[in-house]
């Protein structure tokens, strides 16, 4: 059944259908405020995104892993670690690390930037679904950037012998904060904005 679209609004928290009276609407099921806070949401999304980008740069500069072998300390950055694995011949793992830690965060930044800069432009029906799809892609791939942090935590948890010892580096802290803020940024985006600004149908 298709009915007058503008009359109803979906609660993003509990998915229940509410009547949109044009003003501020509180969800009738979960009592959350579900409209009239468009600008606040967008500002939050931008702030979180910029914070995440700063942490991304820091995470790539500083070592994520510190290895001390017989008193000799060497440290690995994210890209350095992926390159080292490649040179050792573990190509699949090198690719996983590279995709999860370097490529996925960048892809997420680009997708969120695209959504945030484009939402105001009027769009036709097919473009709208595309944007929603982009958002769902960022939602699905987002947590996978945590792979590198977990690997560091596991290695640090296992390798602490008298001769060999692995500890986390400053890069790991920056990286975990980057993932955290990217997720918050994606969560602040209200995908219904893409519908509200659509006057195509």
């Amino acid at each position: 059944m298709k009915s007058n679209k503008d009359k109803y609004i979906r609660c993003p928290y509990c998915e229940s259908v509410n009547v949109d009276n044009g003003g501020v609407v509180y969800c009738r099921t979960c009592k959350n405020r579900i409209s009239g806070n468009k600008e606040i949401n967008l500002r939050n999304a931008w702030a979180m995104l910029i914070t995440a980008m700063i942490f991304y740069v820091i995470a790539n500069i500083y070592p994520i892993l510190v290895i001390s072998k017989f008193g000799v300390t060497s440290s690995n950055t994210i890209i350095g670690g992926a390159i080292a694995l490649w040179e050792e011949g573990s190509y699949p793992i090198s690719i996983i690390i590279f995709v999860a830690s370097v490529f996925v965060p960048l892809l997420k930044f680009i997708l969120i930037l695209y959504i945030l800069t484009n939402y105001k432009k009027p769009q036709k029906g097919s473009r709208r679904v595309d944007q929603a799809m982009l958002y769902h892609i960022t939602e699905v791939i987002g947590p996978w950037s945590m792979v590198d942090v977990f690997v560091v935590a596991i290695l640090a948890g296992v390798v602490h012998m008298s001769s060999v010892k692995i500890t986390a580096g400053i890069g790991a802290t920056a990286f975990v904060l980057m993932v955290f803020f990217t997720m918050l940024s994606a969560m602040s985006i209200d995908i219904r904005l893409m519908r509200e600004d659509n006057d195509g149908d």
């Binding site: 059944m1 298709k2 109803y8 998915e15 229940s16 259908v17 009547v19 929603a132 769902h136 995908i191």
Partner: peptide
Amino acid sequence: MSENLDDLIICSHCETIH
């Protein structure tokens, strides 16, 4: 309101009402 709101559902992916 003629319809009960609990009988409606909006798709979370493309916002179509059903």
